[in-house]
Design a protein around this nucleic acid. Structure first.
Length: 301
DNA sequence: TGCCAGGTCATGG
DNA sequence: CCATGACATGGC
């Protein structure tokens, strides 16, 4: 099926297909690293930058895309989906722990994305002590209320770009609260202003050493270690970043420290050394497993 | 009703 | 360094 093969769109946008291996599109878009993808039939609708996009995967080896505002060049989508990552090599760096390997096998094809850093940062500032479905709702209200309206194909639901730091920084706290973000409003507002004013340069984060980039992000209000690592992992390509949230904490305790609590400092040191150069992917696997394990195995057909 | 949700921050030991 | 509570809002 070759490399990206642009086709025509029937009343919609341009189309392309991408040959992939070990790529589970649904799991990747729905696992809680991005908050803007909505199921649409057998596929997903979303926004990447200023483009409306539909993605679907009817066969394991192919991801298909339809987009508006796209020319013949699909590099922006390949970058976002990280299609050119070599998945087996990433897994090969994991420790051979049986529990981890079982979790990896259970969600093989779960990938990391490379999102827009500001959208990622703002979204995760809104994520603290919120369920993923609620984060999605808050983000949707923010975009609908303050994002630029985008062109969409006929018959599709309207779509908006994610509002930039200039837009969000100019809003009153009460306007932000109206989106349902509660006490996170002043954090988002203040962080937007700092980013807008260049106090923290998000575009410089990918090339910075992890610790330095992390420290820069943690200088923003409402951004601690966990949210900083989310931004570094999901938007900056820092694959060693390892966000520890309540779910991952549970998994780590259960698997690696069943007897006693190692304490926060010790635990963080463990995550920095144990999982290898793609620790963040291991984290995402543990997160996914920890979060979905509540459902019992169903009856075989 | 009560507890929990992809946390962070300020405060007090 | 560690423990604790406040902080809004909504789902289950």
């Amino acid at each position: 099926m070759g490399l990206p093969g642009p086709l025509h769109g029937e009343g919609g946008g341009r189309r392309a297909s991408f040959a992939v291996e070990d790529y589970d599109l649904a799991a990747t878009l729905d696992c809680g690293q991005a908050f803007r993808w909505v199921r649409s039939g057998s596929g997903w609708c979303g926004v990447i930058g200023r483009r409306w996009v539909r993605l679907w995967q009817e066969a394991p080896g192919v991801i298909e895309a339809e987009a508006l505002g796209a020319g013949g060049d699909w590099g922006w989508l390949e970058d976002y989906l990280r299609i050119r990552d070599h998945y087996p090599s990433m897994l090969a760096g994991f420790p051979p722990d049986p529990e981890l390997q079982v979790a990896v096998a259970a969600c093989r094809g779960l990938r990391l994305l490379r999102q827009d850093p500001w959208e990622c940062l703002a979204s995760f500032i809104l994520s603290s002590t919120k369920q993923i479905t609620q984060i999605r709702e808050i983000v949707a209200r923010l975009c609908r209320g303050y994002g630029m309206a985008l062109e969409v194909p006929p018959g599709e639901a309207p779509a908006w770009a994610f509002p930039g730091p200039d837009v969000l920084g100019a809003l009153a706290e009460a306007e932000l609260r109206r989106c349902g973000m509660g006490f996170r409003a002043p954090y988002l507002q203040a962080s937007a202003r700092k980013v807008r004013d260049g106090v923290v340069r998000l575009d410089a984060l990918p090339a910075m050493p992890l610790a330095e980039a992390r420290a820069a992000l943690m200088g923003l209000p409402g951004v601690g270690r966990k949210i900083a690592d989310c931004v570094l992992l999901f938007s900056c390509g820092h694959d060693e970043a390892f966000p520890v949230d309540v779910w991952v904490l549970r998994a780590l305790r259960r698997i690696y420290f069943p007897r006693r609590d190692p304490g926060r400092a010790r635990l963080l040191r463990f995550t920095e050394t144990h999982f290898g150069p793609c620790a963040g992917l291991a984290q995402q696997v543990l997160f996914h497993q920890s979060r979905t394990r509540r459902s019992k195995p169903s009856v075989p057909p």
